[in-house]
Design a protein around this nucleic acid. Structure first.
Length: 469
RNA sequence: GGCGACGUAGCCAAGUGGUAAGGCAGGGGUCUGCAAAACCCCGAUCGCCGGUUCAAAUCCGGCCGUCGCCUCCA
């Protein structure tokens, strides 16, 4: 089975073939670190984390690079407002972001380059573009000359003439063409600056990704990803710079994720309609966010609401139910056989969906089918190798989506301390049930429930767990 | 104004030519002292109009609606 991926560049689903057999180079545009990250950023990180995990599952050796933009207008403005050093501020939010990635169960990238540490590569590239006539100097700035780039606009489907009509671009009469964009910005008072052949200053926004790709992954990358809000101008300009510089195709596959929507609008820092990752994780698990995202398709918008999150939480509980221990002792027979077949079917259905441009909704459906098969087998008394194999497959496939399926714990800290007392109460209640003291037994159960502890009576005794939040 | 995406049951959502996956919520049932969980059963003809086809949610045209990009943005 071959993996097929939608390529924004061609607007078609294409068979994925890496440049070098067995290896994949992947670059994903990371955040500008000047404020708390929100779950829209988390969504992008989670989607490309799963793309990576699936490529690894398919046997590819993946080199994954994602950057931090730590030199930028907004960082500088914010730092000046707060009287802080811009790089210190950026570093603070980068560290926060690292913490978020860990909380969200996103695998660490192989390299996390930062603009501030890539200046040599950036200036070298700008110099190269200047030498070949793709860039020109203007009052201490350096601009990219879009009119010299024949296929400028190929990613976003815009032509230069069209791009101008109705745009809100601030006209800068000095530029040769309104679409020309800054590769280097001359130093201004109160801004950090680096020395360069073009004088002191700092890089434009787009050049950093081109330079970092070149530095860490080479002239051509297999997959370049990011949010679909980056298609224009960011990725268009990256292509222009990189291809003008190397003369080669910059990225084979361009992948773009849809936006997270809150009350019908894109969640974004500038609109202010956001939920930070920290706030989300106070109330919900990382698994819930992943499930919410993967219920839909990565290229489409995801609707975030109290209702969709709640639905994701309940669905999660259902997936977890497949991991509960077996109850019988049947290791062979018809029911065990059915489970074995269902396990195989689930893997096939899962990979077929994922091969189809990461159809995670279909992949999750396969997971639910497997859960039902496991639960049915448990009820039928199946245990042994087929049962554990089914559960192992469930964990493995869910793991490709980054789902951990861990049972919820109580409030941090209280969890460990409370366990022995809960066990004791459950034990006492079992005695009460033996004695048919139903009223008292129910009082214990209801009391525990009000503290977030769920009791379930089974033929093998009473089990308890913490309620999902 | 330009470019692009989308509109499927109460909600989320897959499916891009052969008579609609999955989840949540809801209803009925099995099990249970009761409950919970689990399991079984139940629901939509796919925004509207027209066209192509033996056959369309799926292709084409028009209309209505929503969203994204065109400015920083995952």
């Amino acid at each position: 089975m071959t993996l097929r991926i939608y390529n924004t560049l061609t607007r078609k689903i294409e068979e994925f073939v890496p440049i070098e057999p067995g290896k994949v180079s992947m670059y994903v545009c990371g955040p500008t670190v000047y404020a708390d990250a929100h779950i829209g950023h988390a969504m992008a990180a989670i989607i490309f984390d799963t793309v990576r995990r699936y490529l690894m599952y398919k046997g590819y050796d993946v080199k994954f690079v994602t950057n931090f933009t730590d030199v930028d207008d907004k960082i500088i403005r914010r730092a000046n407002e707060q009287g802080r050093d811009p790089l210190e501020l950026a570093n603070h939010y980068a560290n926060e972001y690292f913490r978020h990635l860990k909380d969200l169960n996103v695998l660490p990238a192989d390299v996390y380059p930062r603009v501030s540490q890539e200046m040599a590569w950036i200036t070298q590239m700008i110099s190269g573009l200047e030498e070949t006539g793709y860039a020109y100097r203007l009052d201490g700035d350096v601009y990219f000359r879009v009119t010299k780039d024949d296929d400028y606009g190929k990613l976003s489907g815009r032509r230069l003439e069209e791009a101008l009509s109705g745009t809100r671009i601030e006209e800068d009469a000095r530029k040769e063409h309104p679409g020309d964009f800054a590769l280097w910005k001359g130093a201004k008072p109160g801004e950090p600056a680096w020395d360069s052949p073009f004088g002191p200053g700092r890089p434009g926004w787009h050049i950093e990704c081109s330079a970092m790709c070149l530095h860490h992954l080479g002239e051509v990358v297999d997959i370049h990803g990011g949010g679909n809000d980056l298609i224009f101008p960011h990725h268009e300009n990256e292509i222009a710079q990189s291809e003008s510089y190397t003369g080669k195709q910059f990225a084979r596959f361009w992948m773009h994720n849809g936006m997270l929507q809150l009350s019908g609008e894109k969640m974004s820092k500038s609109l202010g309609n956001l939920i930070t990752i920290d706030d989300f994780l106070k109330e919900h698990s990382a698994d819930a966010l992943r499930l919410l995202i993967f219920t839909g398709h990565y290229r489409k918008p995801v609707i975030y609401s109290a209702e969709t999150v709640e639905s994701a939480e309940r669905s999660l509980a259902r997936l977890r139910s497949g991991l509960r221990p077996p109850q019988g002792s049947l290791t062979t027979g018809e029911a065990a056989d059915r489970l074995r077949i269902a396990t195989e079917d689930a893997r096939v259905a899962f990979t077929e969906s994922m091969d189809d441009d990461f159809n995670t909704a279909g992949a999750i459906a396969a997971l639910f089918e497997l859960v039902r098969a496991i639960n049915s087998a448990r009820t039928a008394g199946v245990s042994g190798p087929f049962f554990s194999a089914a559960q192992h497959t469930l964990r493995e496939l869910a793991g490709i989506l980054g789902l951990q399926l861990a049972e919820p714990t109580g409030d941090a800290g209280a969890d460990v301390a409370a366990r022995p007392f809960i066990d004791l109460l459950v034990s006492v209640r079992s005695d009460l049930r033996q004695a048919k003291q139903w009223a008292l037994a129910d009082k214990v159960r209801d009391g525990l429930k009000s503290h977030g502890v769920i009791l379930e009576d089974t033929p093998d005794g009473t089990q308890w767990r913490f309620e999902a939040e």
